[in-house]
């Protein structure tokens, strides 16, 4: 890749991140947010039940949902980057900017006890980016769930987890499996 192409890619990345948004719903279903990849909140919805959790909990719910929405926007940015510039350039960006959120982050847990939230259909505008639902809360009545309902949106189908996930052990003794 020439220097001109790299410069063009860098300019494209800045513009891409500026206009990409992501949306997320808190696992409790009490807060929904839309944010840019730089963390700027563009939309925020609080469920009426959220306020019953108290001021501290509301603040924490907003912070966690904003982070999820920002992660969704960054992930969308990576996806767009890979589409427009190719996987090679996306991997190069990943090398210095860090892995995309959905690859790096553990699934967040709900710190606030889940409150049954009445299902609302079509009440929330999802913004331009992808919508992240890290852990779908149990839903009450509603239309039958499609076969893919259990999958996280914006994430490829799950691959089987490797049996050994501790890289440190491997690098400490890479031949341990071959020793008699």
């Amino acid at each position: 890749m020439t220097q001109e192409q790299r410069l063009s890619a860098a300019e494209g990345l800045t513009e891409l991140l500026a206009r990409t948004t992501g949306s997320a719903e808190h696992p409790t279903g009490l807060v929904r947010a839309t944010a840019t990849a730089t963390g700027e909140l563009k939309a925020l919805d609080l469920h009426p039940n959220a306020l019953a959790q108290g001021p501290d909990a509301v603040g924490r719910l907003v912070v966690e949902t904003a982070r999820l929405a920002t992660d969704a926007a960054v992930q969308t940015g990576y996806n767009e980057l890979a589409k427009s510039l190719g996987d090679g350039m996306a991997m190069a960006v990943e090398a210095f900017a860090g892995p995309p959120p959905l690859k790096a982050a553990p699934v967040p847990t709900a710190p606030v006890p889940a409150v049954p939230v009445p299902t609302t259909t079509g009440a929330h505008q999802a913004g331009r980016g992808e919508q992240a639902r890290p852990a779908a809360p149990p839903r009450a009545a509603g239309p039958p769930a499609p076969p893919w309902a259990g999958q996280r949106q914006g994430r490829p189908a799950a691959r089987p987890e490797p049996v050994e996930t501790d890289d440190d052990d491997y690098f400490a003794d890479p031949f341990r499996g071959q020793r008699q």
Partner: peptide, 14 residues
């Protein structure tokens, strides 16, 4: 360049 780190809400704001 990041999302809000802390949101403090006064009780009366509810």
């Amino acid at each position: 360049g990041g999302p809000p780190q802390e949101v403090r809400i006064a009780p009366g704001a509810l």
